[in-house]
């Protein structure tokens, strides 16, 4: 990797001021994407601001009808949290199936959501559960947060401090992992919350997206039979050596039905 200056601030305020003072600085949470990128010399930040020392960013709490997960909370902590398992078991399940044990013990929810990798699992949960992303400056709804391939509503120097997930009446996440990387080739998060039914798809497109036709059908009848004839157009979906866009479109249907069945169990 190229040389860079390393900082380990102790507060969000210090982290933000570091990021703002150095235009080529990059924030690092778990480093699950940044470190491999640095090692391959694909990124050349002047400064890396490691959020690992910002204690206020990690932790899980239940506030009324919401589960609030701090931005620096590790996947393993979400997966193992009794509060999350009780309130939104599908979210704990999702976190427990990200990557491998090493990734789950380093990677964080804030890092994953801020990076918005098209094959990341968390964006599916954020959108399907209609979560709210809280940053150091504002609150952003899930639908407004994810903008496109690796693109979010976050401004320069803006950090995710927590994500608030409303409890779900029913929810489930099912995915087909890429056989090599085990990132989601297609992942579907289905949730029935106070806001209605949502179906969010990750891995299949440039960015997480909702399937309105399925949501409408499921709102009337929350069963896999209700969506069995709904086809997803393959045009514009991702295509690589592991999955053509046709295959991914097909898998969205299969995974959505399986997610609904799992949510009904």
């Amino acid at each position: 990797m190229y040389d860079f200056a390393y900082h380990r601030p102790k507060s969000v305020a210090d982290a933000v001021s570091l990021l703002k003072s150095k235009p080529e600085a990059r924030a690092m949470s778990g480093g699950m994407t940044l470190i491999p990128t640095l090692k391959q010399r694909l990124a050349r930040p002047s400064d890396v601001v490691d959020l690992g020392g910002v204690k206020e960013l990690a932790g899980i709490k239940v506030e009324g009808n919401n589960v609030v997960v701090g931005g620096m909370t590790r996947h393993a902590d979400v997966a193992g949290s009794a509060e999350v398992k009780a309130a939104i078991p599908a979210l704990a399940y999702l976190a427990g199936h990200i990557g491998d044990p090493q990734v789950r013990n380093r990677g964080t929810i804030g890092g994953s959501v801020a990076n918005n990798d098209p094959a990341a699992d968390y964006p599916g949960a954020v959108v399907a559960l209609n979560a709210t992303v809280t940053t150091n400056t504002r609150k952003i709804t899930a639908d407004d947060f994810f903008k496109g391939l690796f693109e979010t509503a976050l401004a320069d120097g803006e950090l995710i401090t927590s994500i608030s997930f409303p409890k779900a009446e029913k929810a489930a996440y099912v995915k087909v992992p890429n056989p090599a990387s085990r990132y989601a080739m297609v992942g579907v998060f289905v949730a029935k919350t106070a806001a209605g039914v949502r179906v969010a798809v990750t891995g299949a497109g440039a960015c997480v997206f909702r399937v309105k036709a399925m949501e409408d059908a499921l709102a009337k009848n929350f069963s896999s039979a209700a969506i069995k004839d709904i086809k997803i157009p393959f045009e514009g979906l991702n295509s690589d050596i592991h999955g053509s866009s046709e295959y991914r479109a097909h898998l969205v249907g299969v995974m959505a039905r399986r997610a609904v069945d799992a949510a009904n169990k």
Partner: peptide, 19 residues
Amino acid sequence: VYDKSTGQLISGSYMDYTM
């Protein structure tokens, strides 16, 4: 997997080569 025209190794890392 090599790209059949450019000869680039597509399965050049564990992201794409399934162990």
